[in-house]
Design a protein around this nucleic acid. Structure first.
Lengths: 344, 344
DNA sequence: TTGTACGCGTTATCAC
DNA sequence: GTGATAACGCGTACAA
C-alpha cells in the first residue's frame, strides 16, 4: 500500500479510501491510485488486515476422516463454498477419531486465529471448551456429540422410517439391520440420543409399525468402517456375508452408511445373488450410492444445507456474538435401483 | 505476549526467548514466563508472526473438483498431512474446471499470502503466471498442463501397460477403451503429451504388443464424468452400454478412471452379465475401486506420494528459492476381482 | 478532500 | 541475561 501511495503521489489513507470505495476522493486522485494499483500488481495483505481488524476471515472445520467417507468432504465443500461467498476461507483438519489429534488441530486453529470453528463430529468436550476459553464460537454439524457447543442436527428418524416403510410396502418382512453400534461410536457425554440410536430406533419403529418384532439374528452392530482397513467396505461385507449364511436369510438389508451398504452389495454379488431381485439393500448418506452397482437406494443426508447453513450460522455468531435459531435438518429417502418387491 | 510479559514481570523479548527456546534466559525468568503463559492461556498469533516474517506458513492447493473425484481429496489430504508435520496449513480451492474461478482462487491465495501453491490440475497458464508475478512458487501435481510451472508427474504408461498386459495374458483380444478425450480434456498449451494421450497410447501399445490392432468400434473417448450430472458414473454407463450393444461385444473394458469403470460395472450388471465371468473391467486411479462390486482391478495412482513429495518440494522452493529435482512417479496395477481369464 | 499518526502482535537488532 | 525499539501492512480517528 505504501508503494501504491508513493507511486500515485498520495497518502496511504487515500489509497485505502479508493480501495474500500469509502469516503471522498477526487476523480483525479482515484485514477492515479487505480493506475498505480494496476502497475504494481498490488493486492491487500490479508494477514495485516486480520491483525488490525482482529478478524482473520477464516474459519476452522474439524472433521473426522475426509479421505474415508465422502460425507465429510461434501459437508466441508459446501461450507467452504458458502464461506467463499462471504469473503471467508476455511482451514480443514481431520482428527481421524483421535481426541489427541483433535486437540492439536484446535490449538492450530486458535493460533491461526480462526473466527469460528465448525465440527463435523466432535470428539472430546474438553477440546471444544478450549475454543470457548479463547472466545471462539463453535458449532457442531450433523451430530450433537457434546453439550459444549450448539448443533445443527439431522433428523435421522424421518429418512430411516421412510426407508423402512418402503421396504415393508415392498413386502419385506425379514429386514436386516447393519449399522453403527451406539455403544461403540456414540460413547462419551453426548447431548440427547446419538445418531446411531436414532437410526436403530427407527428400524425398530418401522418393524413395529408393520407388526413385526426385531430379530436379533438379523441385527449387526459395529463400526461404519475401520480406518485401519483404509476405510473400505470390509465391515459391511463381513456383516452381510454372515447374514447371507443364515438358514433363513433376510430379504432386505438396511445399512446405515453407504460404505457399509457397498460391502453388503459385494457380499451379495459374491454369493451369486442379485440385487434387488433376490435381496434389497438400502444405504444411508447418499455419498457413493449413485456409483455403486446397482445404483443404491439410500437415505440422503442434507450435506449442502449442513455446510451452507452451518457457515451462515457461525458467521452470524461472529458478527452478533450469538447463534441464530438452529434448525434440525431432515434426511430423506432417495429411490434408486437396489430395492424391489420381495421375490416370491 | 504483552500480557504474558506484564504478568511475568519481564520484557516481551524475554518472553519470546522462552517461547522460541532460543537465547539466554535465567531459570527463574523462564519459570515465571511459563507460569504466565499457562495462566493466561496464551497462544502466539499466527497472523502477527506471518506479517512480521513475511511468511504465512500456509500454502494454497488448487484442485479441480473435490467432491466429484476422490482422487483430488486424497492428494490434498496427503499434502496437508505432510504440511502439518512442517508447521504448515493448506487452503483448498476448487476451480471445477472453470478458468475464471481458478483466477479468483489464485487471487485469494495471493491476498492470503500463501507461501506457495500446489496445482492438482491447473487450467490456464495466465493464471499460473499471476503467481510468478507475485513471487510465489507453484508446482503442478500429477499433470503438467502448463509450462509456466514445474511438475511432479505420474507415469501413466507403466500402469496402463501393465493393465493391458494383464488382460492380454488372460486371453482377452477384444479390449475396449473408455477414456478421456485428449482433445477435450488436454486442450491448451500443455507441456508434453497429456495424461489422456499417455493412457490411450499405452492402450495402443498394449494391443500392438499382442499383435492386435485397435478397433475404432471399441474405443470411446469423452469426459471422465460430467459435473452437471453431479459427477456420477453416467458417462461410463453410457459408453459401456453402447459397447455391450455391439454385435461382437468386447470381453474386457479398460476404463481410464474408476468413476468411468463404476458406470461400466452398472451397465454390465443391468445387461444381466457378470464381471469378471462374462466381461472383465479395469479402472484407473484406485479411488472408489475397493468399494465397487465386484472390487475393481485398477491402475493405482501414487496419491500419497504426490501429496507428500509435492509439499516437500514446494517447501524446499520456499526456503531455498528453487525446486529440487522433481520425480516422475509410477502408477501400478492393483489386482482385485473384476478381471479374469476370458470365458470360452 | 487529503494527510498524519498510532496500534494490532510478532520478531529481530542493538544496547545495556 | 535482559530490555528498548523498530518494522511488517493495514485501518482509522483526527487534524488540516
Amino acid at each position: 500500500m505504501m508503494q501504491v501511495a508513493e507511486r500515485a503521489g498520495v497518502s496511504t489513507a487515500t489509497v485505502a479510501r479508493v480501495l474500500k470505495a469509502k469516503g471522498y476522493v477526487s476523480d483525479e486522485a482515484r485514477a492515479r491510485v487505480e493506475a498505480a494499483v494496476k502497475a504494481i500488481g498490488y493486492r491487500p495483505n490479508a494477514m495485516a488486515r486480520g491483525l488490525r481488524q482482529r478478524r482473520s476471515f477464516t474459519i476452522g472445520h474439524m472433521l473426522d476422516a475426509i479421505i474415508v467417507n465422502p460425507f465429510f468432504v461434501n459437508v466441508a465443500h459446501w461450507a467452504e463454498e458458502e464461506a467463499l461467498e462471504h469473503g471467508y476461507k476455511t482451514f480443514l483438519f481431520n482428527h481421524n477419531g483421535d481426541g489427541e489429534r483433535e486437540r492439536i488441530g484446535i490449538e492450530r486453529f486458535i493460533e491461526r486465529r480462526v473466527d469460528a470453528v465448525l465440527f463435523t463430529n466432535a470428539i472430546a468436550t474438553e477440546n471444544v471448551r478450549l475454543l470457548a476459553a479463547a472466545g471462539i464460537p463453535a458449532l457442531q454439524l450433523e451430530r450433537s456429540k457434546t453439550p459444549a457447543a450448539p448443533a445443527i442436527r439431522v433428523d435421522n428418524r424421518v429418512g430411516a422410517l421412510e426407508a423402512m416403510r418402503h421396504l415393508v410396502e415392498q413386502g419385506h418382512r425379514r429386514i436386516a439391520f447393519v449399522g453403527g453400534d451406539p455403544d461403540l461410536i456414540g460413547r462419551g457425554a453426548t447431548a440427547g440420543p446419538t445418531v446411531e440410536e436414532d437410526r436403530l430406533e427407527a428400524y425398530r419403529s418401522g418393524l413395529a409399525a408393520a407388526g413385526l418384532s426385531p430379530d436379533p439374528a438379523l441385527m449387526r452392530l459395529g463400526r461404519y468402517y475401520s480406518l485401519e482397513a483404509g476405510g473400505t467396505s470390509s465391515e459391511g461385507y463381513r456383516h452381510a456375508k454372515s447374514l447371507l449364511g443364515l438358514e433363513k436369510r433376510p430379504t432386505a438389508i438396511f445399512a446405515t452408511c453407504d460404505i457399509l451398504a457397498a460391502g453388503a452389495l459385494q457380499a451379495v454379488y459374491e454369493a451369486g445373488l442379485r440385487v434387488p431381485d433376490d435381496i434389497s439393500v438400502i444405504g444411508f448418506d447418499d455419498t457413493i450410492a449413485a456409483n455403486l452397482t446397482p445404483q443404491l437406494t439410500t437415505v440422503a443426508q442434507p450435506m449442502e444445507d449442513l455446510g451452507r447453513i452451518g457457515f451462515r450460522a457461525v458467521l452470524a455468531a461472529i458478527e452478533s456474538g450469538e447463534f441464530p435459531e438452529l434448525p434440525v435438518l431432515p434426511s430423506r429417502l432417495v429411490l434408486r435401483r437396489s430395492t424391489a418387491s420381495i421375490a416370491r
